[in-house]
Amino acid sequence: MDGKKAAIWLAIALLILTAFGSGYLIAHKEVKTKAKITFIDGIGRTVEIHETPKRVVSMASSATEILYAIGCSENIVGVDKYSDYPPDVKNKTVIGSSYSPNLEAIVGLEPDLLIAWWYARDNLLPIEDKVTVMYINPQSVEDVLQLIRQIGLIMNKVEEAEKLVKEMQSRIENITQITENLNKSQRPLVYYELSKKGRTVGQGTFTNELIYMAGGINIAADEPFRYPDLTDEYIIARNPDVIVVVSYGASVEEIKSREGWQNINAIKNDRVYSIDRHLVTASPRLVDGLEQLAKWFHPELFD
């Protein structure tokens, strides 16, 4: 038993040593050289770019679309499996998803830059020292415009990026200069449905912002969670004027036929619409989504 006791103490000592040792290992690895561009990415990391990237792997559909929109499609050598626009993306090598990336394929592609969603970080930590990684985390329309500028700067496409931003801004203004003057009673109440009945968008989401910009009021705008589940009762009681369902969710017919929903204004007045899921993400096409929503909310103003 004495030998065992000694072994146990040894184990505990080693456990503590390992904890400190690995902490030290992780804390002490940094390489310093002069960079061409230094910027702060979406999660606050400092990223250094030494030369305009020629081979980019994009693990964020949003970044993929931006790269295409500013004329860098040639530079994309790999994408994640959720990047599916524009259609040409399907000719690119797929490297898995943010949740289970194939690190070997990413490194094998020898990219100069890897763009990924912020939540992919845990999975990309092992290759952060081999590939320049930029994490993105756009949470508002303004963030998306900033992101376009940032990617433009990195890819040496400042003019193209600025042109795209200007164009988007002017289209956004066309809508908001009309909608910002609407008072509360002129704005339709909107229920926006995601994957299942009741699942919607609340505070701090991109779609919530788009709904307001398009001149509507989201019935869940004050919910504390970003993706709350509303009860039937609440939705019926709020009596939304317009219902928008995202394309991967329920069909318009299904919503119209839901029991107890017949008296909702949106259903009585046939104002239930399905929106392409790509138009409500952090990509340049969010303007299309905004225009679409505005037309549905205010057909008299935007047709």
């Binding site: 040792g21 690995s22 290992l25 992780i26 898995g96 289970s100 690190l103 930590l125 092992p126």
Partner: peptide, 9 residues
């Protein structure tokens, strides 16, 4: 998929 030497150590 996110294995690394650090995790091994």
């Amino acid at each position: 998929w996110n294995a690394s030497w650090e995790k091994v150590y």
